[in-house]
Design a binder for these strands. Sequence first.
DNA 1: CCATATTTCAAACGCTCGTTTGAATTGGCA
DNA 2: TGCCAATTCAAACGAGCGTTTGAAATATGG
Lengths: 241, 241
Amino acid sequence: MSAATQPKLDTSSAQTRQALIESGGAVFAEVGFHNATVREICRRAGANGAAVNYHFGDKDALYREVLAYYQARALQKFPLDMGVQPGAPAPARLRAFVRSFLLRIFDHSSDAWHGKLISREMIDPTSALDAIVVERIRPQAQHLGAIVRELIGGEADPETVRLCSFSLVSQCLFYHHCQPVVSRLFPEQKFSTEQVEKLADHITSFSLAAIKACSRRGKEAQRPLASKKSASSPRRLRAAR
Amino acid sequence: MSAATQPKLDTSSAQTRQALIESGGAVFAEVGFHNATVREICRRAGANGAAVNYHFGDKDALYREVLAYYQARALQKFPLDMGVQPGAPAPARLRAFVRSFLLRIFDHSSDAWHGKLISREMIDPTSALDAIVVERIRPQAQHLGAIVRELIGGEADPETVRLCSFSLVSQCLFYHHCQPVVSRLFPEQKFSTEQVEKLADHITSFSLAAIKACSRRGKEAQRPLASKKSASSPRRLRAAR
DNA sequence: CCATATTTCAAACGCTCGTTTGAATTGGCA
DNA sequence: TGCCAATTCAAACGAGCGTTTGAAATATGG
């Protein structure tokens, strides 16, 4: 089995191992798995170029260890509910979800690579994505889905819940995925903690209003009160403003 | 100057050149500039491995030609207003914008690589991104900004307009950028023309409701009618539902 | 038809990458 | 101290990449 997964804590070897995981986290988060080079990771760790292969076997194995290491850290640093009680009103839970999501991605501290790593996996996957979807993304999707379902109320259409969830997540991911464009369009934009809070405010209020409208539409559809034209092709819209 | 930019139309050389641009468009759109290989592009074009260097100089130059070629095609195939009159009501223009944006990205026909190429540039830029931002993205951002500003009404706060615009664009881009995740979460999801129409409906109605709420908030802030507490840190929210 | 320019081709070059190698160094323990 | 395993190291290997090369094939035009 694996040579040293948890124990061994202070030997020179373990130090090198840890340094590689940390520099690996930084490099993988910055440029992604495919653009990251083993040589650069070793250089930042102050280790020899063969260190990755000696301690982990190959680049893929190091990447898996990096993911596992920062996933464990992320779990304690960014709990899914962001400290909000499960019984709290849905809008508060939604805001906590958005804030937590953004902080995971924009946290500048060196032990918070997990959000950036997952964000990269979503647009440039490796073989690790399958496991990440099962272990992290799907649970988060279900958590968010429950909030959205409660916000909509009644028997929410599963497809509506899914679409609204995606609308929420997409807004959170955008500023990270499309940073090259955002920074060119608005060079003064920087993602300080304060800016992230503003962003969380916007995304939450924007989406809450939208979901509330979905809820109203859904209820009207359920209780056909007066006119019910255009039943075949459900082209909503044109009624706004 | 460049050897042959427009003329020369039927020689064997021009045929090879055109084949390279088309296979290049396909490969660049599928795997991105950095992951695309000259050998694969030549193979699909039925040309020799040295053809790219002979006809274009290097890989970068081919990429620039591919971008220019499909940009010209996209302009005629997907006009910015999607055929809607400039004087049309803002909601209709917004829907046209969203629909056009999605179609550009999800069009399955072989002469519609431009949307996919730009979508890739946004998350994995090349040296071409600067020009793309100036020539394509910024004009689109201004077009969308004008629609959003009209939807909000009054003197819309520029930052609010910017945030709402990003919220819109992010929803459109999400399904393309994060396709690896979406397809794992919902394997049955496919992006047929019909699905894209549904998506356009959702994103438009979702965002229209949200922007209308922004508008209401803005007007309340302008005319301070009754209570005006918390003037320093504008924490909206908590009032929903 | 032949001389010339253009285009195609197989092969190789130079580079970077992940990985391997075998020797040198280090650390733990009798 | 002396031995042995664990670790580090410089160097090189093999594969894939963009690109170059020089000869072969093809088209052009007087």
